[in-house]
C-alpha cells in the first residue's frame, strides 16, 4: 500500500497562522484587505484585457 506523508503538523501551523492573523490590529487587518483588493483589481484588469478583441 502507498505511504502518504503526515500533514497534521502543516494543518496545525496553518490554523496557528490564522489565529495570529486574527490577533492583528483592525488597521493591520484592513491593510491586508487593501493589498488583496489591489491584487483583485489588477487580476480583473488583466482578465478583461485578455478578453478584449485585438484591433488591427
Amino acid at each position: 500500500m502507498k505511504k502518504y506523508p503526515n500533514v497534521t503538523e502543516l494543518f496545525r501551523q496553518k490554523a496557528q497562522r490564522r489565529k495570529r492573523l486574527a490577533r492583528l490590529s483592525f488597521e493591520e487587518k484592513i491593510a491586508v484587505v487593501n493589498k488583496w483588493r489591489k491584487l483583485t483589481r489588477s487580476i480583473r484588469k488583466s482578465q478583461s484585457a485578455a478578453k478584449s478583441p485585438v484591433t488591427r
Binding site: 486574527a22 492583528l24 487587518k29 484592513i30 484587505v33 483583485t40
Partner: peptide
C-alpha cells in the same frame, strides 16, 4: 465583512 474582520482573521471583501 469589514465588521467581521474586526473580530476574526482578514477576509477578502470589496
Amino acid at each position: 465583512a469589514v465588521a467581521a474582520i474586526f473580530y476574526i482573521e482578514p477576509i477578502n471583501t470589496n
